[in-house]
Design a protein around this nucleic acid. Structure first.
Length: 703
RNA sequence: AGCGGGAUGGGAUAGCCAGGAGAUUCCGGCGGGCUCAUAACCCGCAGAUCGGUAGUUCAAAUCUACCUCCCGCUACCA
């Protein structure tokens, strides 16, 4: 079963992953929000009724922990970031129809409705689990309040995930040797009753869901593995105050709040609902999107079948939260009788100099920083949208930013608009009286078709490039026809050419609008058009522009080299600092190092170890063994035959002549049928061979 | 180790899902043109065995298998 092409006869909603309220926004976040914003504008442009919603993610232990450190209430702490986000997004022309937060009333009510629904349908059960407890503070330690050892891989783990080792999601009670992050004391486990959502109930459903989901490959492929394996119960409650209360009755679980990943995605629904309530259900009805025309469906046959009675839900997220959106979230929706997502678009990460952003090391380009530099938001939008495909990881670079802005927006688009409109204004006071030529009309229609196709394929990159391509065509057209000559030679032809160019300019305004909304609006004004370009349909690109308009001013301004050099230098300094930090860390604690042996040995014991300087004379591989080499090592007195596990790491041809250290009185052994009389010393898994740096004669004892 | 993503002229990228002349756009190099325009614009040239090996096919950048190398997941986090 496949989805209808956009525009569909149901409303759509585009959501962006909720920003978590404990840090500033950077270019990595913005990539996701720009993509979501451009897509929602594109959908609207092709006639799809669309809401674009988001909100701040307020709950969870990191906020509680950070608030406690700052000595403020979690709500106050989170609200501050929430307000910053709400102000920052519009500055990048990211305009949500509704921007709420997870701690508001709508979300609280809706979340509790979801949970009650799961309980009613029998998807929730209670289990006693061991919960880490801080004895000094006499309080439970949920998620990030506890650190310890991962039970699966033995690496350091914190809270609900094994972040240093195997990346597994950890359930409460899994962590071994727990330590409280509040007091630093060892924590003890106590038995508590918690609520669990039985994800296994949805296994068949989720497999079907993954077959029909649209979106980026990473979002479609990565969850498959999780859903094909056994789905563990998801613990949906936590022992803490900050969060939405578990909707228990008669004292049931009354001191529990819901896990942050329960109420966070429900904010997508809540935010849509708020929008719907604000504009009225006539204008936009949230229930036609998230439910089945107002109905919650719990029928079980639904597992294999599927229905298009709901609206089209499009999630734009970062690729770190694919699991939550492609596995937990659809199960949550299904359990509550709600509609499912149509598509999940997971954006790649933004890095700097080939490395991931590091907010704590300040190796990042911040939203604030970009705005302070004084660039128009649309320039960033264009750069980040065209730099690479949606799911590819990219590097942010001021140089490339300048290249694209100057080369494509200024030189190509801006210059075409300017020369076309200036020529038109000077010679005709506006749009010349002539019909658009067939070629130009065809070219515009082609672009409009490509626009529709790009939106349907969620291809923001192509969407962004359409305006450049059309301007490029315009520049060639002007050059080819040379209207400045035609003015005298063939005035009628000149009017025709300029008429075409003005039409092209108008078409550029219409197609550039999703990615460059601010600039499109301004161009719209330059064309003498009334109203907003955001409100017109695609076909408007083919309608005649106003007869008169004023002299245009420059749509895009050149980014100055000096300015870029400055920004580069600033960024480079920070990158270097961040790298230094990392090197320090590596020196201090290389996680791969084996612990030092604490048992000391006596000097006599050491004297019993006879190590000699030797030189490899011959090396050949041992039959049937992948890793083993048979070596002959000259240690002065004699030539020893030794078997060593070097085959995978060293080239057999290059070993002869290499000076090594041989443990000469190693007990004799026969390995793969070959006698071994010693041991070649090497460091680590890479078998870094020990050698001498001066010319100690062969057979010299190492002491 | 595991998982995901990637490797395409000098640099950055598109094309791959739905195989059909080796290829898109931007920057850079070389040569020319134009002068309406933001030292912009237009035309032409040079430059790549599409990471490697094998396979499927009439046909492979594209599909399959294996391999090599890079990046992320290691603190917050899109």
């Amino acid at each position: 079963m496949s989805h209808d092409d956009f525009p569909t006869d149901h409303p759509a909603v585009v959501t962006c992953g909720l920003p978590y309220a404990n840090g500033d926004l950077h270019v990595g976040h913005l990539r996701t929000y720009v993509a979501g914003d451009a897509l929602s504008r594109g959908l609207r442009r092709i006639g799809q009724q669309t809401a674009f919603v988001c909100g701040s993610d307020m709950h969870g232990t990191p906020v509680a922990v950070n608030a406690a450190e700052d000595g403020v209430e979690p709500r106050e702490f989170a609200m501050e970031y929430h307000e910053t986000y709400a102000e920052t997004f519009p500055q990048f022309n990211v305009e949500f129809d509704n921007y709420g937060h997870t701690d508001d009333e709508t979300n609280t009510e809706l979340t509790q409705e979801f949970v009650r629904s799961w309980v009613d349908e029998g998807h929730v059960h209670e289990k006693e689990i061991e919960v880490a407890w801080d004895t000094e503070e006499d309080q439970p330690l949920p998620d990030r309040f506890v650190e310890g050892t991962c039970p699966y891989c033995g690496e350091q783990a914190r809270g609900d995930e094994c972040d240093e080792g195997c990346q597994r999601h950890l359930e409460p009670g899994d962590i071994e040797d727990p330590v409280s992050t509040i007091t630093g004391n060892p924590a003890e486990y106590r038995t508590r009753e918690h609520k669990f959502l039985r994800l296994a109930d949805f296994q068949a459903y989720l497999q079907g869901f993954l077959d029909r989901i649209e979106g980026t490959d990473n979002a479609k492929n990565q969850p498959r593995e999780w859903v094909e394996g056994e789905l563990q119960d998801l613990c949906i409650t936590r022992d803490m105050d900050w969060g939405i209360d578990y909707p228990g009755e008669d004292g049931d679980a009354e001191d529990l709040v819901l896990y942050v990943w329960v109420d966070a995605p429900i904010e997508y629904v809540a935010s849509t609902k708020q929008y719907s309530e604000r504009v009225g259900a006539e204008e936009y009805d949230w229930e036609r999107v998230w439910t089945f025309d107002g109905e919650r469906r719990h029928d079980t046959e639904w597992d294999d079948e599927w229905t298009t009675e709901g609206g089209d839900i499009v999630h734009v997220i970062g690729r770190d939260i694919i699991q939550h959106h492609a596995v937990f979230w659809p199960a949550m929706l299904r359990g509550a009788g709600y509609n499912e997502p149509r598509s999940i678009l997971a954006t790649g990460f933004v890095g700097i100099d080939g490395k991931a952003l590091s907010t704590s090391r300040n190796r990042a380009v911040w939203a604030e920083e970009y705005l302070d530099a004084g660039f128009h938001p649309d320039l960033f939008r264009y750069y980040i949208a065209t730099g690479a495909g949606l799911e590819t990881d990219v590097d942010f670079s001021w140089d490339r930013f300048a290249e694209r802005v100057n080369g494509e927006l200024v030189g190509n688009v801006g210059n075409f608009i300017n020369r076309a409109l200036l020529f038109a204004h000077r010679n005709y006071d506006g749009t010349p009286d002539a019909d658009v030529s067939e070629d130009v009309r065809d070219r515009i229609e082609e672009t409009l078709a490509a626009f529709e196709a790009a939106v349907r394929e969620y291809d923001v990159r192509t969407l962004a490039e359409l305006s450049t391509e059309l301007s490029n065509y315009g520049n060639e057209y002007i050059q080819r026809t040379e209207p400045w000559h035609l003015l005298d030679e063939d005035p009628e032809e000149a009017a025709q050419v300029i008429r075409d160019c003005v039409q092209l300019a108008k078409a550029v305004a219409v197609v550039m609008q999703p990615v460059l909304p601010g600039k499109a609006e301004r161009l719209w004004g330059q064309l003498g058009e009334a109203g907003s370009v955001a409100d017109v349909s695609l076909d408007t690109a083919l309608e005649a522009p106003p007869e008169t308009f004023d002299e245009p001013d420059q749509l895009f301004e050149q980014v100055e080299d000096d300015h870029i050099a400055e920004l580069n230098e600033e960024l480079q300094d920070r990158v270097e600092e961040a790298s230094d930090d990392e090197d320090d860390d590596a020196d201090e604690a290389d996680v791969d190092l084996e612990p030092l042996e604490t048992d000391r040995i006596s000097f006599e014991d050491f004297e019993g170890v006879d190590m000699r300087v030797g030189e490899i004379v011959t090396a050949e591989s041992v039959e049937d063994a992948d890793k083993l080499l048979k070596l002959e090592v000259d240690i002065g007195h004699e030539v020893r035959q030794v078997v060593a596990g070097l085959a995978e790491l060293h080239d057999v041809e290059e070993l002869p002549g290499t000076r090594v250290i041989l443990l000469a009185n190693m007990e004799q052994a026969t390995i793969f049928g070959v006698e071994s009389n010693g041991m070649v010393l090497a460091a680590g898994d890479e078998a870094d061979l020990l050698t001498t740096h001066e010319d100690a004669p062969l057979g010299t004892r190492v002491q």
